[in-house]
Design a protein around this nucleic acid. Structure first.
Lengths: 216, 216
DNA sequence: CGCCCTGTTGACAAAGGTCAACTAGCGTGG
DNA sequence: CCACGCTAGTTGACCTTTGTCAACAGGGCG
Protein backbone atom coordinates (compact mmCIF):
# COMPACT_ATOMS: atom_id res chain seq x y z
CA UNK A 1 0.00 0.00 0.00
CA UNK A 2 1.60 3.25 -1.10
CA UNK A 3 1.40 6.46 0.85
CA UNK A 4 -1.98 8.01 0.51
CA UNK A 5 -2.01 11.70 -0.16
CA UNK A 6 -4.46 14.41 -0.88
CA UNK A 7 -3.32 16.85 -3.47
CA UNK A 8 -5.90 19.52 -3.91
CA UNK A 9 -8.81 20.78 -1.92
CA UNK A 10 -11.09 19.42 -4.59
CA UNK A 11 -9.98 15.89 -3.82
CA UNK A 12 -10.04 16.48 -0.07
CA UNK A 13 -13.12 15.41 1.83
CA UNK A 14 -13.03 18.72 3.68
CA UNK A 15 -12.96 20.80 0.58
CA UNK A 16 -15.65 18.62 -0.83
CA UNK A 17 -17.85 18.95 2.20
CA UNK A 18 -17.27 22.67 2.21
CA UNK A 19 -18.59 22.82 -1.30
CA UNK A 20 -15.41 23.58 -3.25
CA UNK A 21 -16.36 23.71 -6.87
CA UNK A 22 -19.91 24.65 -6.09
CA UNK A 23 -19.30 28.04 -4.61
CA UNK A 24 -18.14 27.07 -1.12
CA UNK A 25 -14.71 27.63 0.31
CA UNK A 26 -12.76 25.55 2.76
CA UNK A 27 -11.62 27.17 6.00
CA UNK A 28 -8.47 25.10 6.11
CA UNK A 29 -5.19 26.55 5.04
CA UNK A 30 -2.26 24.51 3.74
CA UNK A 31 0.94 24.42 5.70
CA UNK A 32 4.07 22.36 5.38
CA UNK A 33 5.77 20.83 8.33
CA UNK A 34 9.07 19.03 8.43
CA UNK A 35 9.96 15.91 10.34
CA UNK A 36 10.19 16.65 14.03
CA UNK A 37 8.03 19.75 14.06
CA UNK A 38 5.10 20.01 16.40
CA UNK A 39 1.53 21.00 15.66
CA UNK A 40 0.66 21.54 19.29
CA UNK A 41 1.42 20.37 22.77
CA UNK A 42 -0.53 18.50 25.39
CA UNK A 43 -2.22 20.88 27.79
CA UNK A 44 -1.84 23.92 25.57
CA UNK A 45 -4.99 25.95 24.89
CA UNK A 46 -6.73 24.30 21.95
CA UNK A 47 -7.12 26.93 19.28
CA UNK A 48 -6.66 25.14 15.98
CA UNK A 49 -7.80 21.97 14.29
CA UNK A 50 -5.62 20.30 11.73
CA UNK A 51 -6.24 18.04 8.79
CA UNK A 52 -3.51 15.83 7.42
CA UNK A 53 -3.16 15.85 3.64
CA UNK A 54 0.15 14.08 3.34
CA UNK A 55 2.54 12.50 5.77
CA UNK A 56 2.27 11.14 9.27
CA UNK A 57 1.50 12.73 12.60
CA UNK A 58 1.90 10.95 15.91
CA UNK A 59 -0.09 11.80 18.98
CA UNK A 60 1.77 11.40 22.23
CA UNK A 61 0.88 11.86 25.82
CA UNK A 62 3.30 12.36 28.69
CA UNK A 63 2.71 10.25 31.78
CA UNK A 64 1.42 13.47 33.23
CA UNK A 65 4.49 14.97 34.76
CA UNK A 66 7.71 13.21 33.85
CA UNK A 67 8.79 16.00 31.58
CA UNK A 68 10.73 15.00 28.54
CA UNK A 69 9.12 11.62 28.09
CA UNK A 70 6.21 11.56 25.73
CA UNK A 71 4.82 8.21 24.74
CA UNK A 72 3.31 7.83 21.29
CA UNK A 73 -0.31 6.85 21.56
CA UNK A 74 -1.73 6.97 18.08
CA UNK A 75 -0.85 7.74 14.50
CA UNK A 76 -2.76 9.96 12.13
CA UNK A 77 -2.15 9.72 8.43
CA UNK A 78 -3.47 11.44 5.33
CA UNK A 79 -7.17 12.07 5.59
CA UNK A 80 -7.33 12.39 9.35
CA UNK A 81 -8.16 15.27 11.62
CA UNK A 82 -5.85 16.16 14.45
CA UNK A 83 -6.78 18.24 17.45
CA UNK A 84 -10.53 17.96 16.99
CA UNK A 85 -10.83 17.73 20.75
CA UNK A 86 -10.67 21.50 20.57
CA UNK A 87 -14.39 21.32 19.86
CA UNK A 88 -15.23 19.93 23.24
CA UNK A 89 -12.52 21.03 25.60
CA UNK A 90 -10.23 23.95 26.19
CA UNK A 91 -6.84 22.26 25.96
CA UNK A 92 -5.19 19.70 23.72
CA UNK A 93 -5.12 16.17 25.04
CA UNK A 94 -2.02 15.14 23.11
CA UNK A 95 1.19 16.45 21.76
CA UNK A 96 1.11 16.24 17.97
CA UNK A 97 4.45 15.68 16.29
CA UNK A 98 5.15 15.23 12.61
CA UNK A 99 7.30 12.23 11.70
CA UNK A 100 7.79 12.89 8.03
CA UNK A 101 7.53 15.82 5.71
CA UNK A 102 3.92 16.65 5.90
CA UNK A 103 1.26 18.83 4.41
CA UNK A 104 -1.37 19.79 6.91
CA UNK A 105 -4.27 22.17 6.75
CA UNK A 106 -5.04 24.23 9.78
CA UNK A 107 -8.07 26.20 10.76
CA UNK A 108 -9.02 28.23 13.76
CA UNK A 109 -11.63 26.84 16.06
CA UNK A 110 -14.08 29.49 14.91
CA UNK A 111 -13.61 28.56 11.28
CA UNK A 112 -14.12 24.89 12.02
CA UNK A 113 -17.20 25.67 14.04
CA UNK A 114 -18.66 27.59 11.15
CA UNK A 115 -17.67 24.90 8.70
CA UNK A 116 -19.40 22.20 10.74
CA UNK A 117 -22.74 23.96 10.46
CA UNK A 118 -25.38 24.73 13.01
CA UNK A 119 -24.71 23.46 16.53
CA UNK A 120 -27.25 20.99 17.84
CA UNK A 121 -27.45 19.18 14.56
CA UNK A 122 -27.52 15.39 15.00
CA UNK A 123 -24.20 14.81 13.32
CA UNK A 124 -22.57 17.49 15.44
CA UNK A 125 -24.06 16.16 18.61
CA UNK A 126 -22.76 12.71 17.78
CA UNK A 127 -19.35 14.06 16.82
CA UNK A 128 -19.01 15.98 20.05
CA UNK A 129 -20.15 13.06 22.10
CA UNK A 130 -17.62 10.77 20.47
CA UNK A 131 -14.83 13.26 21.05
CA UNK A 132 -15.75 13.59 24.67
CA UNK A 133 -16.00 9.85 25.20
CA UNK A 134 -12.76 8.95 23.49
CA UNK A 135 -11.01 11.77 25.30
CA UNK A 136 -12.03 10.31 28.63
CA UNK A 137 -10.99 6.83 27.61
CA UNK A 138 -7.42 7.88 27.93
CA UNK A 139 -6.64 6.32 31.28
CA UNK A 140 -4.51 3.97 29.31
CA UNK A 141 -2.70 0.87 30.32
CA UNK A 142 0.74 -0.57 29.88
CA UNK A 143 3.77 -1.33 31.94
CA UNK A 144 5.89 1.69 31.13
CA UNK A 145 3.11 4.06 32.16
CA UNK A 146 4.11 3.87 35.77
CA UNK A 147 3.65 1.00 38.16
CA UNK A 148 0.37 -0.51 39.20
CA UNK A 149 -0.16 1.51 42.38
CA UNK A 150 0.49 4.69 40.52
CA UNK A 151 -1.92 3.91 37.74
CA UNK A 152 -4.62 2.89 40.16
CA UNK A 153 -4.14 6.05 42.21
CA UNK A 154 -4.33 8.15 39.10
CA UNK A 155 -7.46 6.46 37.98
CA UNK A 156 -9.11 6.88 41.34
CA UNK A 157 -8.39 10.59 41.26
CA UNK A 158 -9.89 10.93 37.83
CA UNK A 159 -12.74 8.47 37.98
CA UNK A 160 -13.64 7.79 41.56
CA UNK A 161 -17.28 8.43 40.80
CA UNK A 162 -17.51 5.59 38.35
CA UNK A 163 -15.90 3.16 40.75
CA UNK A 164 -19.25 2.21 42.18
CA UNK A 165 -21.02 0.02 39.68
CA UNK A 166 -17.92 -1.39 38.08
CA UNK A 167 -16.76 -4.92 38.86
CA UNK A 168 -13.12 -5.18 39.86
CA UNK A 169 -12.24 -7.37 36.93
CA UNK A 170 -13.35 -4.57 34.61
CA UNK A 171 -11.47 -1.91 36.48
CA UNK A 172 -8.41 -4.10 36.18
CA UNK A 173 -8.96 -4.42 32.43
CA UNK A 174 -9.34 -0.67 32.08
CA UNK A 175 -6.03 -0.18 33.81
CA UNK A 176 -4.27 -2.84 31.81
CA UNK A 177 -3.58 -5.19 34.65
CA UNK A 178 -4.88 -8.47 35.93
CA UNK A 179 -7.36 -8.51 38.83
CA UNK A 180 -4.79 -9.88 41.28
CA UNK A 181 -2.54 -6.93 40.65
CA UNK A 182 -5.38 -4.48 41.12
CA UNK A 183 -6.23 -6.14 44.38
CA UNK A 184 -2.66 -5.82 45.62
CA UNK A 185 -2.43 -2.22 44.51
CA UNK A 186 -5.63 -1.36 46.35
CA UNK A 187 -4.34 -3.13 49.43
CA UNK A 188 -1.22 -1.00 49.29
CA UNK A 189 -3.22 2.20 48.93
CA UNK A 190 -5.32 1.06 51.82
CA UNK A 191 -2.20 0.54 53.95
CA UNK A 192 -1.21 4.08 53.12
CA UNK A 193 -4.57 5.25 54.41
CA UNK A 194 -5.42 6.74 51.06
CA UNK A 195 -8.51 4.66 50.45
CA UNK A 196 -10.91 2.47 52.34
CA UNK A 197 -11.64 -0.69 50.49
CA UNK A 198 -13.76 -3.75 50.99
CA UNK A 199 -14.26 -6.37 48.40
CA UNK A 200 -17.03 -4.44 46.83
CA UNK A 201 -16.85 -0.91 47.98
CA UNK A 202 -14.20 1.67 47.46
CA UNK A 203 -13.95 5.04 49.14
CA UNK A 204 -11.29 7.67 48.85
CA UNK A 205 -10.24 8.59 52.35
CA UNK A 206 -7.26 10.86 51.84
CA UNK A 207 -7.04 12.54 48.45
CA UNK A 208 -3.67 14.08 49.14
CA UNK A 209 -2.16 10.72 50.03
CA UNK A 210 -3.67 9.46 46.81
CA UNK A 211 -2.10 12.27 44.87
CA UNK A 212 1.23 11.45 46.42
CA UNK A 213 0.89 7.80 45.44
CA UNK A 214 -0.03 8.88 41.93
CA UNK A 215 3.20 10.84 41.74
CA UNK A 216 1.47 14.16 41.21
CA UNK B 1 -21.04 13.23 41.82
CA UNK B 2 -24.29 11.34 41.56
CA UNK B 3 -25.20 9.09 38.66
CA UNK B 4 -26.19 11.10 35.68
CA UNK B 5 -29.30 9.96 33.90
CA UNK B 6 -31.47 10.98 31.06
CA UNK B 7 -35.14 10.57 31.71
CA UNK B 8 -37.10 11.57 28.69
CA UNK B 9 -36.35 12.04 25.03
CA UNK B 10 -36.96 15.73 25.50
CA UNK B 11 -34.02 15.99 27.87
CA UNK B 12 -31.88 13.72 25.71
CA UNK B 13 -29.47 15.33 23.29
CA UNK B 14 -30.61 12.87 20.65
CA UNK B 15 -34.25 13.65 21.01
CA UNK B 16 -33.35 17.30 21.04
CA UNK B 17 -31.29 17.06 17.92
CA UNK B 18 -34.04 15.07 16.25
CA UNK B 19 -36.42 17.89 16.93
CA UNK B 20 -38.62 16.37 19.62
CA UNK B 21 -41.07 19.02 20.63
CA UNK B 22 -40.84 20.73 17.30
CA UNK B 23 -42.34 18.04 15.13
CA UNK B 24 -39.38 15.68 14.83
CA UNK B 25 -39.14 12.20 16.17
CA UNK B 26 -36.18 10.31 17.51
CA UNK B 27 -35.26 7.03 15.86
CA UNK B 28 -34.00 5.56 19.10
CA UNK B 29 -36.13 3.12 21.04
CA UNK B 30 -35.86 2.59 24.76
CA UNK B 31 -34.78 -0.76 26.09
CA UNK B 32 -33.84 -1.98 29.53
CA UNK B 33 -30.87 -4.19 30.13
CA UNK B 34 -29.86 -5.86 33.34
CA UNK B 35 -26.40 -6.23 34.76
CA UNK B 36 -24.42 -8.74 32.76
CA UNK B 37 -26.42 -8.51 29.55
CA UNK B 38 -24.70 -7.78 26.29
CA UNK B 39 -25.57 -5.22 23.64
CA UNK B 40 -23.37 -6.81 21.02
CA UNK B 41 -20.21 -8.78 20.53
CA UNK B 42 -16.87 -8.00 18.96
CA UNK B 43 -16.78 -9.13 15.35
CA UNK B 44 -20.51 -9.43 15.00
CA UNK B 45 -22.14 -7.65 12.05
CA UNK B 46 -22.77 -4.09 13.16
CA UNK B 47 -26.48 -3.44 12.72
CA UNK B 48 -27.48 -1.20 15.60
CA UNK B 49 -26.25 1.88 17.37
CA UNK B 50 -27.02 2.41 21.03
CA UNK B 51 -27.34 5.43 23.23
CA UNK B 52 -26.97 5.13 26.98
CA UNK B 53 -29.61 6.95 29.00
CA UNK B 54 -28.88 5.47 32.38
CA UNK B 55 -26.30 3.07 33.76
CA UNK B 56 -22.92 1.91 32.64
CA UNK B 57 -21.70 -0.03 29.65
CA UNK B 58 -18.19 -1.41 29.33
CA UNK B 59 -16.49 -2.01 26.03
CA UNK B 60 -14.16 -4.95 25.99
CA UNK B 61 -11.95 -6.50 23.41
CA UNK B 62 -10.60 -10.03 23.47
CA UNK B 63 -6.91 -10.42 22.80
CA UNK B 64 -8.07 -11.65 19.43
CA UNK B 65 -8.43 -15.34 19.99
CA UNK B 66 -8.11 -16.40 23.62
CA UNK B 67 -11.80 -17.11 23.88
CA UNK B 68 -13.37 -16.40 27.22
CA UNK B 69 -11.07 -13.57 28.14
CA UNK B 70 -12.36 -10.16 27.29
CA UNK B 71 -10.47 -7.19 28.65
CA UNK B 72 -12.42 -4.06 29.46
CA UNK B 73 -11.13 -1.19 27.40
CA UNK B 74 -13.47 1.72 28.02
CA UNK B 75 -16.58 2.72 29.89
CA UNK B 76 -19.60 4.47 28.48
CA UNK B 77 -22.03 6.18 30.79
CA UNK B 78 -25.26 8.11 30.41
CA UNK B 79 -25.13 10.38 27.40
CA UNK B 80 -22.77 8.28 25.34
CA UNK B 81 -23.22 6.43 22.09
CA UNK B 82 -22.15 2.84 21.83
CA UNK B 83 -21.49 0.98 18.62
CA UNK B 84 -21.23 4.06 16.42
CA UNK B 85 -18.45 2.29 14.56
CA UNK B 86 -21.32 0.70 12.67
CA UNK B 87 -21.30 3.86 10.57
CA UNK B 88 -17.88 3.18 9.15
CA UNK B 89 -17.33 -0.53 9.25
CA UNK B 90 -19.27 -3.73 8.94
CA UNK B 91 -18.56 -5.35 12.30
CA UNK B 92 -18.41 -4.24 15.91
CA UNK B 93 -14.98 -3.53 17.29
CA UNK B 94 -15.86 -4.27 20.88
CA UNK B 95 -18.07 -6.40 23.00
CA UNK B 96 -20.51 -4.18 24.89
CA UNK B 97 -21.59 -5.43 28.27
CA UNK B 98 -23.86 -3.72 30.76
CA UNK B 99 -22.54 -3.52 34.33
CA UNK B 100 -25.59 -2.12 36.04
CA UNK B 101 -29.26 -1.91 35.35
CA UNK B 102 -29.35 0.26 32.34
CA UNK B 103 -31.67 2.07 30.02
CA UNK B 104 -30.38 2.20 26.49
CA UNK B 105 -31.90 3.38 23.27
CA UNK B 106 -31.24 1.41 20.17
CA UNK B 107 -31.69 2.24 16.53
CA UNK B 108 -30.99 0.42 13.34
CA UNK B 109 -28.16 1.62 11.23
CA UNK B 110 -30.59 2.89 8.63
CA UNK B 111 -32.46 4.95 11.20
CA UNK B 112 -29.26 6.46 12.51
CA UNK B 113 -28.13 7.24 9.01
CA UNK B 114 -31.34 9.06 8.34
CA UNK B 115 -31.17 10.85 11.67
CA UNK B 116 -27.67 12.10 10.96
CA UNK B 117 -28.81 13.92 7.84
CA UNK B 118 -27.35 14.10 4.39
CA UNK B 119 -24.07 12.23 3.87
CA UNK B 120 -21.14 14.36 2.87
CA UNK B 121 -22.04 17.08 5.28
CA UNK B 122 -19.01 18.51 7.11
CA UNK B 123 -20.11 17.27 10.51
CA UNK B 124 -20.74 13.80 9.14
CA UNK B 125 -17.44 13.70 7.34
CA UNK B 126 -15.68 14.66 10.53
CA UNK B 127 -17.65 12.17 12.58
CA UNK B 128 -16.86 9.34 10.23
CA UNK B 129 -13.22 10.27 10.08
CA UNK B 130 -12.95 10.30 13.85
CA UNK B 131 -14.64 6.93 14.11
CA UNK B 132 -12.29 5.46 11.56
CA UNK B 133 -9.21 6.91 13.21
CA UNK B 134 -10.07 5.90 16.74
CA UNK B 135 -11.05 2.46 15.53
CA UNK B 136 -7.62 1.97 14.04
CA UNK B 137 -5.92 3.23 17.17
CA UNK B 138 -6.90 0.10 18.93
CA UNK B 139 -3.64 -1.82 18.81
CA UNK B 140 -3.43 -1.08 22.47
CA UNK B 141 -0.65 -1.67 24.89
CA UNK B 142 -0.25 -3.33 28.25
CA UNK B 143 1.44 -6.27 29.79
CA UNK B 144 -1.46 -8.68 29.98
CA UNK B 145 -2.18 -8.29 26.26
CA UNK B 146 0.37 -10.92 25.40
CA UNK B 147 4.12 -10.65 25.52
CA UNK B 148 6.22 -8.21 23.55
CA UNK B 149 6.99 -10.46 20.59
CA UNK B 150 3.36 -11.29 20.20
CA UNK B 151 2.24 -7.68 20.27
CA UNK B 152 4.88 -6.65 17.78
CA UNK B 153 3.96 -9.49 15.43
CA UNK B 154 0.32 -8.56 15.64
CA UNK B 155 1.06 -4.95 14.92
CA UNK B 156 3.22 -5.82 11.96
CA UNK B 157 0.44 -7.89 10.48
CA UNK B 158 -2.03 -5.07 10.87
CA UNK B 159 0.13 -2.04 10.17
CA UNK B 160 3.16 -3.04 8.19
CA UNK B 161 2.49 -0.30 5.70
CA UNK B 162 2.88 2.45 8.23
CA UNK B 163 6.12 1.03 9.52
CA UNK B 164 8.09 3.05 7.05
CA UNK B 165 8.15 6.62 8.23
CA UNK B 166 7.77 5.87 11.92
CA UNK B 167 10.75 6.12 14.25
CA UNK B 168 11.27 3.06 16.43
CA UNK B 169 10.76 4.98 19.62
CA UNK B 170 7.26 5.87 18.45
CA UNK B 171 6.44 2.35 17.41
CA UNK B 172 7.52 1.25 20.85
CA UNK B 173 5.23 3.85 22.42
CA UNK B 174 2.32 2.71 20.30
CA UNK B 175 2.83 -0.83 21.49
CA UNK B 176 3.21 0.17 25.11
CA UNK B 177 6.79 -0.87 25.52
CA UNK B 178 10.14 0.73 25.83
CA UNK B 179 12.41 0.97 22.73
CA UNK B 180 14.85 -1.61 24.07
CA UNK B 181 12.10 -4.16 24.35
CA UNK B 182 10.90 -3.46 20.83
CA UNK B 183 14.41 -3.92 19.57
CA UNK B 184 14.71 -7.29 21.28
CA UNK B 185 11.33 -8.41 20.02
CA UNK B 186 12.28 -7.50 16.46
CA UNK B 187 15.56 -9.36 16.84
CA UNK B 188 13.64 -12.43 17.92
CA UNK B 189 11.26 -12.19 14.98
CA UNK B 190 14.27 -11.80 12.76
CA UNK B 191 15.84 -14.97 14.19
CA UNK B 192 12.60 -16.76 13.36
CA UNK B 193 12.95 -15.57 9.79
CA UNK B 194 9.65 -13.76 10.00
CA UNK B 195 11.01 -10.32 9.26
CA UNK B 196 14.10 -8.69 7.87
CA UNK B 197 15.17 -5.79 9.95
CA UNK B 198 17.92 -3.23 9.90
CA UNK B 199 18.06 -0.31 12.21
CA UNK B 200 15.78 1.67 10.03
CA UNK B 201 14.07 -0.62 7.63
CA UNK B 202 11.63 -3.34 8.32
CA UNK B 203 10.33 -5.90 5.87
CA UNK B 204 7.99 -8.78 6.45
CA UNK B 205 9.65 -11.84 5.02
CA UNK B 206 7.38 -14.66 6.10
CA UNK B 207 3.81 -13.67 6.96
CA UNK B 208 2.87 -17.13 8.14
CA UNK B 209 5.77 -17.24 10.59
CA UNK B 210 4.61 -13.84 11.75
CA UNK B 211 1.10 -15.09 12.24
CA UNK B 212 2.46 -17.97 14.24
CA UNK B 213 4.46 -15.62 16.45
CA UNK B 214 1.35 -13.50 16.89
CA UNK B 215 -0.49 -16.53 18.16
CA UNK B 216 -3.09 -16.43 15.40
C1' DC C 1 35.71 14.19 9.08
C1' DG C 2 33.69 13.97 13.39
C1' DC C 3 29.81 14.66 16.39
C1' DC C 4 25.35 13.49 17.77
C1' DC C 5 21.20 11.10 17.75
C1' DT C 6 18.79 6.81 17.45
C1' DG C 7 18.84 2.29 17.84
C1' DT C 8 21.05 -2.17 19.56
C1' DT C 9 22.91 -5.33 22.91
C1' DG C 10 24.09 -7.02 27.57
C1' DA C 11 23.52 -7.59 32.59
C1' DC C 12 20.62 -7.03 36.34
C1' DA C 13 16.64 -6.23 39.35
C1' DA C 14 12.06 -5.66 40.14
C1' DA C 15 7.37 -5.44 38.76
C1' DG C 16 3.76 -8.03 37.80
C1' DG C 17 1.66 -12.25 35.62
C1' DT C 18 0.50 -17.14 36.79
C1' DC C 19 -1.09 -20.76 39.59
C1' DA C 20 -3.21 -22.23 43.58
C1' DA C 21 -5.58 -22.08 47.89
C1' DC C 22 -8.78 -19.68 50.45
C1' DT C 23 -12.85 -16.41 51.88
C1' DA C 24 -16.80 -13.38 51.53
C1' DG C 25 -21.15 -12.72 50.04
C1' DC C 26 -25.06 -13.86 47.29
C1' DG C 27 -28.42 -16.67 45.27
C1' DT C 28 -30.63 -20.92 45.00
C1' DG C 29 -33.02 -24.75 46.24
C1' DG C 30 -34.24 -28.10 49.46
C1' DC D 1 -35.49 -20.50 56.58
C1' DC D 2 -31.24 -22.42 56.53
C1' DA D 3 -27.54 -24.62 54.19
C1' DC D 4 -25.08 -25.26 50.41
C1' DG D 5 -22.54 -23.98 46.49
C1' DC D 6 -21.07 -20.74 43.18
C1' DT D 7 -18.64 -16.63 41.75
C1' DA D 8 -15.79 -12.69 42.45
C1' DG D 9 -12.26 -11.18 44.98
C1' DT D 10 -8.06 -11.71 47.97
C1' DT D 11 -3.66 -13.47 49.41
C1' DG D 12 0.65 -16.04 48.97
C1' DA D 13 4.66 -18.12 46.48
C1' DC D 14 7.13 -18.36 42.47
C1' DC D 15 9.19 -17.22 38.16
C1' DT D 16 8.99 -14.98 33.66
C1' DT D 17 8.96 -10.75 31.33
C1' DT D 18 10.39 -6.44 30.79
C1' DG D 19 11.97 -2.11 32.42
C1' DT D 20 16.47 0.11 33.82
C1' DC D 21 21.18 1.37 33.36
C1' DA D 22 25.15 1.37 30.75
C1' DA D 23 28.18 0.75 26.90
C1' DC D 24 28.43 0.63 22.08
C1' DA D 25 27.56 1.21 16.90
C1' DG D 26 25.51 2.87 12.62
C1' DG D 27 24.22 6.91 9.82
C1' DG D 28 23.07 11.48 8.98
C1' DC D 29 24.27 16.08 9.13
C1' DG D 30 26.94 19.84 9.92
Amino acid sequence: MSEQRIVSCASCPCGHAAGIGSGGSCPLIDRRKERGEYLFFEGEPATHVWFVKRGTVVLARGSGEGEGQERARAVRKAGAFVGLEALVQPTYLDTARVTSSTTVCGATLAAVNAWLGAPGTPARVALEQVLRATGDDAPRAAGPDGNAVRRVARWLLADQQSAGPLPRRDVAGLLGMVPETLSRALAQLSDLGAVEVTRRSLRVRDPSALRAAAGL
